[in-house]
Amino acid sequence: MMDIVGAVALVTGATGGIGRSLVSTLLEAGARKIIACDLDEAALGEIKRSAPGRCETHAFDVTDEQAVQRVAAACGDVSLLINCHGLVIHESYLEAAGVAGFRKEMEVNYWGQVLMCRAFAPIVGKNGGGAIANFLSPLALATHPFCGNYCASKAACRALTDAMRAELAEQGTLVVSIFPGAIDTQMMTKLDMPKSQPAEVAAGVVAAIIAGDTECWVGETAPEFRDQWRIDPAPLVAAAAKYLRLPK
C-alpha cells in the first residue's frame, strides 16, 4: 500500500492523454508535488492555476542516460515513479523498409523504463519505499504480428518490472505492472473498438497504487483479457495471430 497524500510523484509521458490525466488524478488524491515530464506549457499553466506550487515539468529524453541522471539528481524527493511514456510502430517485421523504427520503439519503451528505474529506485527507497509503476500492455502476453516489435518491447518491460519487484522488495518498494486495455488516446486513433477515457484509466492506476496491488488491469477489454489469460491463453494467442493491420 502507498499513501499518495503528501507524496512527490514523477510521471513520464505526461503530455499524452493518460499521463496528463495521471497528473490531475494524483493532485486530486493529495500528492504534495508532481514532476510532470514533458508536459506542454499550456497544460502546465492550467495545472499551476488550479494547483499552485504543486506541479513542475522537466523536458528530457528517457533514452538519454545522462539526461535521466540529471533529472534524478534534481528530483531527490520523489517517492512515486510512474513510467507512462511509450511509442508504437504499426509495421510488420518483414514489410518495414528498415529497422530504425523498431530500434527506436525498443529504446523508448524498454530502455527508457530501464534507465528510469535504475535512476529512481534508490531515491524512492530513500524516501520511505514508495512505489514504481510501469505501463506494460496485454500485448506483452499475446503478440499481434503487425505490431510485433511493440509487443516485444512490452514483453521486455514485463520482465523488467518483475525483476524490479524482486530486487526492490527488501527496501519496501511497491512495484506495479499496469496492463491498460483500449484507451481513447492518439496511439489508438485508428482502432475501431470500444475505448475507455484516459481519466478512467488514471483513476484505476492510482487506486491500484493506493491499494498496494502489484498488477493493474484497467480500460476496455483489459479485465476480460486477464481473466481469459488465467483460464486458458490459447484463444487469445490464436486471435492475436489473426490480427489485421491497421488502415493507413
Rank of each mutant, 00 (worst) to 15 (best):
P247A: 09
V8K: 09
G130W: 07
L246P: 02
L10D: 03
Y243R: 12
I34D: 10
D232G: 04
H58P: 10
R226Y: 07
A155Q: 03
A97N: 14
G86L: 05
E215C: 01
A203H: 14
L236F: 13
I209G: 04
G45T: 03
G212M: 11
A202N: 04
P138E: 02
W111D: 06
A74L: 12
I183G: 03
R226Q: 12
E65L: 07
T12Y: 07
D213C: 08
V114N: 07
A239K: 13
K154Y: 00
M193S: 08
M188Y: 06
V176S: 02
A29L: 04
H85W: 00
F60M: 08
L80V: 12
F146D: 02
F120A: 11
R230T: 07
A140E: 01
A43E: 11
Q66I: 09
P194N: 06
D40A: 06
M187Y: 05
T189A: 15
A133Q: 05
C75G: 04
S92T: 04
R32K: 12
I4G: 04
A241L: 07
P223R: 02
L139H: 14
A199S: 11
A73K: 13
M116A: 02
E224R: 12
A166W: 04
P198W: 15
G76P: 06
L174K: 03
G125Y: 10
C147W: 15
R226T: 07
I178F: 04
A182E: 08
P52V: 00
A222D: 02
R32C: 05
D40P: 09
C216R: 00
A9C: 09
I209H: 07
N83T: 03
T185A: 01
A203N: 12
K242Q: 15
A156C: 01
A72E: 10
F102A: 06
C37Y: 13
I210M: 10
A72D: 10
A72W: 13
R70M: 13
S50I: 02
E41I: 14
T173L: 13
R54S: 11
G76K: 15
I34Y: 07
Y150H: 08
V206Q: 11
V71I: 09
G13T: 06
V5W: 04
V205T: 03
F135S: 05
A7P: 06
W111G: 01
A211D: 12
E105M: 06
F135T: 08
A36R: 14
V23R: 12
G19R: 03
T25L: 06
